[in-house]
Protein backbone atom coordinates (compact mmCIF):
# COMPACT_ATOMS: atom_id res chain seq x y z
CA UNK A 1 0.00 0.00 0.00
CA UNK A 2 2.78 2.37 0.97
CA UNK A 3 4.64 1.57 -2.25
CA UNK A 4 1.54 2.52 -4.21
CA UNK A 5 1.14 5.99 -2.70
CA UNK A 6 4.88 6.59 -3.15
CA UNK A 7 4.57 5.63 -6.75
CA UNK A 8 1.64 7.99 -7.14
CA UNK A 9 3.64 10.89 -5.76
CA UNK A 10 6.64 10.11 -7.90
CA UNK A 11 4.31 9.85 -10.87
CA UNK A 12 2.98 13.34 -10.23
CA UNK A 13 6.46 14.70 -9.74
CA UNK A 14 7.64 13.29 -13.03
CA UNK A 15 4.46 14.55 -14.68
CA UNK A 16 5.20 18.05 -13.41
CA UNK A 17 8.82 17.76 -14.55
CA UNK A 18 7.81 16.83 -18.09
CA UNK A 19 5.16 19.53 -18.08
CA UNK A 20 7.90 22.10 -17.55
CA UNK A 21 10.25 20.44 -20.03
CA UNK A 22 7.50 20.40 -22.67
CA UNK A 23 6.81 24.08 -22.17
CA UNK A 24 10.50 24.89 -22.56
CA UNK A 25 10.74 22.72 -25.68
CA UNK A 26 7.65 24.17 -27.34
CA UNK A 27 8.31 27.75 -26.29
CA UNK A 28 10.59 28.79 -29.19
CA UNK A 29 7.98 27.69 -31.71
CA UNK A 30 5.19 29.38 -29.77
CA UNK A 31 7.26 32.56 -29.76
CA UNK A 32 7.88 32.28 -33.49
CA UNK A 33 4.17 31.76 -34.06
CA UNK A 34 3.20 34.82 -32.02
CA UNK A 35 5.89 36.91 -33.66
CA UNK A 36 4.55 36.06 -37.09
CA UNK A 37 1.48 38.19 -36.37
CA UNK A 38 3.48 41.25 -35.35
CA UNK A 39 5.07 44.03 -37.24
CA UNK A 40 8.76 43.21 -36.89
CA UNK A 41 9.82 46.83 -36.33
CA UNK A 42 7.40 47.07 -33.43
CA UNK A 43 8.57 43.70 -32.20
CA UNK A 44 12.18 44.81 -32.03
CA UNK A 45 11.35 48.14 -30.46
CA UNK A 46 8.93 47.02 -27.76
CA UNK A 47 9.64 43.35 -27.32
CA UNK A 48 6.94 40.75 -27.23
CA UNK A 49 3.81 40.24 -25.22
CA UNK A 50 3.62 36.50 -24.58
CA UNK A 51 -0.14 36.30 -24.12
CA UNK A 52 -2.35 35.56 -27.09
CA UNK A 53 -4.29 38.75 -27.77
CA UNK A 54 -6.47 38.50 -30.83
CA UNK A 55 -6.68 42.28 -31.08
CA UNK A 56 -2.89 42.46 -31.54
CA UNK A 57 -2.67 39.65 -34.06
CA UNK A 58 -2.44 41.03 -37.55
CA UNK A 59 -2.41 38.95 -40.68
CA UNK A 60 -0.42 41.54 -42.61
CA UNK A 61 2.75 39.43 -42.76
CA UNK A 62 0.89 36.48 -44.19
CA UNK A 63 -0.96 38.66 -46.66
CA UNK A 64 2.35 40.11 -47.73
CA UNK A 65 4.15 36.81 -48.35
CA UNK A 66 1.18 35.15 -50.01
CA UNK A 67 -0.33 37.94 -52.06
CA UNK A 68 2.27 40.70 -51.98
CA UNK A 69 4.32 42.02 -54.85
CA UNK A 70 6.66 39.58 -56.53
CA UNK A 71 5.37 36.63 -54.55
CA UNK A 72 8.76 34.97 -54.41
CA UNK A 73 7.76 33.06 -51.30
CA UNK A 74 5.16 31.07 -53.21
CA UNK A 75 7.84 30.10 -55.73
CA UNK A 76 9.97 28.72 -52.92
CA UNK A 77 7.01 26.88 -51.52
CA UNK A 78 6.21 25.37 -54.89
CA UNK A 79 9.85 24.33 -55.38
CA UNK A 80 9.96 22.71 -51.96
CA UNK A 81 6.71 20.85 -52.52
CA UNK A 82 7.71 19.56 -55.96
CA UNK A 83 11.26 18.59 -55.01
CA UNK A 84 10.07 16.81 -51.88
CA UNK A 85 7.34 15.06 -53.85
CA UNK A 86 9.59 13.76 -56.62
CA UNK A 87 12.46 12.98 -54.29
CA UNK A 88 10.29 10.97 -51.92
CA UNK A 89 8.65 8.93 -54.66
CA UNK A 90 11.88 8.17 -56.52
CA UNK A 91 13.90 7.60 -53.41
CA UNK A 92 11.48 5.23 -51.70
CA UNK A 93 11.03 3.34 -54.97
CA UNK A 94 14.74 2.85 -55.69
CA UNK A 95 15.79 2.37 -52.08
CA UNK A 96 13.11 -0.27 -51.52
CA UNK A 97 14.24 -2.10 -54.67
CA UNK A 98 17.83 -2.20 -53.48
CA UNK A 99 16.89 -3.13 -49.93
CA UNK A 100 14.64 -5.89 -51.21
CA UNK A 101 17.37 -7.24 -53.51
CA UNK A 102 19.82 -7.29 -50.61
CA UNK A 103 17.36 -8.81 -48.19
CA UNK A 104 15.78 -11.58 -50.23
CA UNK A 105 18.29 -12.91 -52.76
CA UNK A 106 21.55 -14.77 -52.38
CA UNK A 107 24.10 -13.63 -54.93
CA UNK A 108 27.79 -13.07 -55.43
CA UNK A 109 29.05 -9.78 -54.07
CA UNK A 110 26.04 -9.32 -51.79
CA UNK A 111 28.12 -8.75 -48.68
CA UNK A 112 30.37 -6.31 -50.47
CA UNK A 113 27.37 -4.27 -51.65
CA UNK A 114 25.92 -4.25 -48.16
CA UNK A 115 29.18 -3.06 -46.66
CA UNK A 116 29.26 -0.30 -49.29
CA UNK A 117 25.75 0.75 -48.25
CA UNK A 118 26.88 0.98 -44.63
CA UNK A 119 29.96 2.85 -45.71
CA UNK A 120 28.03 5.49 -47.65
CA UNK A 121 25.68 5.82 -44.70
CA UNK A 122 28.62 6.77 -42.52
CA UNK A 123 30.19 9.41 -44.74
CA UNK A 124 28.85 12.93 -44.32
CA UNK A 125 27.85 14.43 -47.63
CA UNK A 126 29.54 17.70 -46.75
CA UNK A 127 32.85 16.11 -47.67
CA UNK A 128 31.62 15.44 -51.18
CA UNK A 129 29.98 18.76 -51.85
CA UNK A 130 32.79 20.27 -53.93
CA UNK A 131 33.19 17.41 -56.44
CA UNK A 132 29.43 16.90 -56.51
CA UNK A 133 29.00 20.56 -57.29
CA UNK A 134 31.43 20.23 -60.21
CA UNK A 135 29.62 17.11 -61.35
CA UNK A 136 26.26 18.88 -61.44
CA UNK A 137 27.86 21.62 -63.49
CA UNK A 138 29.23 19.04 -65.95
CA UNK A 139 25.88 17.26 -66.17
CA UNK A 140 24.17 20.63 -66.68
CA UNK A 141 21.79 20.00 -63.79
CA UNK A 142 23.09 22.83 -61.64
CA UNK A 143 20.27 25.06 -60.40
CA UNK A 144 17.60 22.47 -61.28
CA UNK A 145 15.32 20.10 -59.39
CA UNK A 146 17.30 17.15 -60.80
CA UNK A 147 20.49 18.59 -59.37
CA UNK A 148 18.95 18.58 -55.91
CA UNK A 149 17.33 15.16 -56.25
CA UNK A 150 19.62 12.87 -58.26
CA UNK A 151 22.80 12.65 -56.16
CA UNK A 152 20.95 11.49 -53.04
CA UNK A 153 18.13 9.56 -54.64
CA UNK A 154 19.24 6.17 -53.32
CA UNK A 155 19.21 6.70 -49.58
CA UNK A 156 21.50 4.24 -47.77
CA UNK A 157 19.48 4.58 -44.57
CA UNK A 158 16.28 3.63 -46.42
CA UNK A 159 18.08 0.75 -48.18
CA UNK A 160 19.18 -0.51 -44.79
CA UNK A 161 15.67 -0.19 -43.39
CA UNK A 162 14.00 -1.97 -46.34
CA UNK A 163 16.61 -4.73 -46.22
CA UNK A 164 15.91 -5.38 -42.55
CA UNK A 165 12.18 -5.36 -43.25
CA UNK A 166 12.44 -7.70 -46.26
CA UNK A 167 14.54 -10.20 -44.30
CA UNK A 168 11.76 -10.49 -41.76
CA UNK A 169 9.05 -11.25 -44.33
CA UNK A 170 7.50 -14.63 -45.09
CA UNK A 171 9.19 -16.06 -48.20
CA UNK A 172 6.54 -18.71 -48.99
CA UNK A 173 4.59 -16.21 -51.06
CA UNK A 174 7.56 -15.88 -53.36
CA UNK A 175 7.85 -19.57 -54.22
CA UNK A 176 4.09 -19.72 -54.68
CA UNK A 177 4.28 -16.76 -57.05
CA UNK A 178 7.11 -18.38 -59.02
CA UNK A 179 5.07 -21.54 -59.51
CA UNK A 180 2.25 -19.37 -60.84
CA UNK A 181 4.66 -18.08 -63.49
CA UNK A 182 5.33 -14.65 -62.08
CA UNK A 183 8.56 -12.88 -63.12
CA UNK A 184 10.99 -11.79 -60.42
CA UNK A 185 9.88 -8.22 -60.91
CA UNK A 186 6.24 -9.20 -60.88
CA UNK A 187 6.91 -10.85 -57.53
CA UNK A 188 8.38 -7.64 -56.24
CA UNK A 189 5.60 -5.35 -57.44
CA UNK A 190 2.63 -7.64 -56.87
CA UNK A 191 3.64 -9.45 -53.69
CA UNK A 192 6.47 -7.74 -51.87
CA UNK A 193 5.53 -4.10 -52.27
CA UNK A 194 2.12 -4.64 -50.64
CA UNK A 195 3.79 -6.66 -47.88
CA UNK A 196 6.29 -3.88 -47.25
CA UNK A 197 3.59 -1.23 -46.88
CA UNK A 198 4.45 -0.34 -43.25
CA UNK A 199 8.10 0.06 -44.24
CA UNK A 200 7.04 2.37 -47.07
CA UNK A 201 4.96 4.34 -44.62
CA UNK A 202 7.84 4.91 -42.25
CA UNK A 203 10.38 5.65 -44.98
CA UNK A 204 8.30 8.02 -47.12
CA UNK A 205 7.65 10.13 -44.06
CA UNK A 206 11.29 10.14 -43.00
CA UNK A 207 12.59 10.84 -46.51
CA UNK A 208 10.02 13.56 -47.09
CA UNK A 209 10.87 15.28 -43.84
CA UNK A 210 14.59 15.11 -44.45
CA UNK A 211 14.18 16.46 -47.93
CA UNK A 212 11.76 19.21 -46.96
CA UNK A 213 14.27 20.40 -44.38
CA UNK A 214 17.49 19.70 -46.24
CA UNK A 215 19.78 22.66 -46.36
CA UNK A 216 23.44 22.20 -47.25
CA UNK A 217 23.13 20.55 -50.65
CA UNK A 218 20.29 22.71 -52.03
CA UNK A 219 22.22 25.77 -50.82
CA UNK A 220 25.03 24.76 -53.15
CA UNK A 221 23.05 23.55 -56.16
CA UNK A 222 20.32 26.18 -56.32
CA UNK A 223 21.79 29.42 -57.61
CA UNK A 224 18.89 31.73 -58.41
CA UNK A 225 16.20 33.17 -56.19
CA UNK A 226 13.39 31.75 -58.38
CA UNK A 227 14.66 28.19 -57.85
CA UNK A 228 15.30 28.28 -54.10
CA UNK A 229 13.57 25.86 -51.77
CA UNK A 230 12.06 27.18 -48.53
CA UNK A 231 15.11 26.73 -46.27
CA UNK A 232 17.41 28.34 -48.83
CA UNK A 233 15.00 31.15 -49.60
CA UNK A 234 14.38 31.88 -45.93
CA UNK A 235 18.10 31.82 -45.17
CA UNK A 236 18.64 34.37 -47.93
CA UNK A 237 16.40 36.74 -45.97
CA UNK A 238 18.59 36.58 -42.89
CA UNK A 239 20.54 39.78 -42.83
CA UNK A 240 21.73 41.31 -39.59
CA UNK A 241 19.85 44.59 -39.92
CA UNK A 242 17.44 43.59 -42.61
CA UNK A 243 13.87 44.65 -43.05
CA UNK A 244 12.94 41.15 -44.09
CA UNK A 245 11.94 39.82 -40.72
CA UNK A 246 8.22 40.08 -41.48
CA UNK A 247 8.63 37.73 -44.37
CA UNK A 248 11.19 35.55 -42.59
CA UNK A 249 9.08 34.86 -39.51
CA UNK A 250 5.73 34.28 -41.18
CA UNK A 251 7.48 32.28 -43.89
CA UNK A 252 9.12 30.06 -41.28
CA UNK A 253 5.79 29.35 -39.63
CA UNK A 254 4.20 28.33 -42.93
CA UNK A 255 7.23 26.13 -43.65
CA UNK A 256 6.75 24.04 -40.50
CA UNK A 257 3.00 23.60 -40.77
CA UNK A 258 2.90 20.74 -43.32
CA UNK A 259 5.38 18.62 -41.36
CA UNK A 260 3.62 19.19 -38.07
CA UNK A 261 0.31 18.16 -39.62
CA UNK A 262 1.81 14.99 -41.12
CA UNK A 263 3.49 14.28 -37.80
CA UNK A 264 0.30 14.64 -35.78
CA UNK A 265 -1.44 12.04 -37.91
CA UNK A 266 1.45 9.61 -38.35
CA UNK A 267 3.41 9.67 -35.13
CA UNK A 268 4.04 5.96 -35.16
CA UNK A 269 5.50 5.98 -38.66
CA UNK A 270 7.74 8.91 -37.77
CA UNK A 271 9.08 7.14 -34.75
CA UNK A 272 9.53 3.80 -36.57
CA UNK A 273 11.42 5.51 -39.36
CA UNK A 274 13.66 7.43 -37.04
CA UNK A 275 14.46 4.64 -34.66
CA UNK A 276 15.45 2.48 -37.63
CA UNK A 277 18.70 4.37 -37.59
CA UNK A 278 19.13 3.52 -33.96
CA UNK A 279 18.58 -0.20 -33.98
CA UNK A 280 21.22 -2.34 -35.57
CA UNK A 281 21.14 -6.12 -35.44
Amino acid sequence: MRGNTDRKWIGWLIFLFFGIVSIVMLFPLYYLFLASFRDSKELFRFGMDLAIRPELMKLDNYKYILFGEGNIYLHWYKNSVLITFFFTILSSFFSSMVGYGLGVYKFKGKNLVFVLVLFVMMIPLEILMLPLYRLTVQFRIINTYSGVILPFMVSPLAVFFFRQYAIGLEKDFLSAGRIDGCTEFGLYFKIMVPLMKPAFGAMTILLAMQNWNSFVWPLIVLRTNQNFTLPIGLSSLMTPYGNNYDMLIAGSVLAIIPIVIVFLFNQKSFIDGLSSGGIKG
Binding site: L248, A255, I256
Partner: peptide, 16 residues
Protein backbone atom coordinates in the same frame (compact mmCIF):
# COMPACT_ATOMS: atom_id res chain seq x y z
CA UNK B 1 6.17 17.60 -27.39
CA UNK B 2 9.85 16.79 -26.97
CA UNK B 3 10.02 15.53 -30.51
CA UNK B 4 8.39 18.47 -32.31
CA UNK B 5 11.58 20.59 -32.48
CA UNK B 6 13.21 17.79 -34.48
CA UNK B 7 10.64 18.40 -37.22
CA UNK B 8 11.83 21.89 -37.99
CA UNK B 9 14.51 22.72 -40.50
CA UNK B 10 17.67 24.21 -39.11
CA UNK B 11 16.76 27.53 -40.71
CA UNK B 12 13.33 27.76 -39.12
CA UNK B 13 14.77 26.70 -35.76
CA UNK B 14 17.48 29.29 -36.23
CA UNK B 15 14.95 32.05 -36.92
CA UNK B 16 13.20 31.23 -33.64
Amino acid sequence: ALFVPALTSIIVAGVA
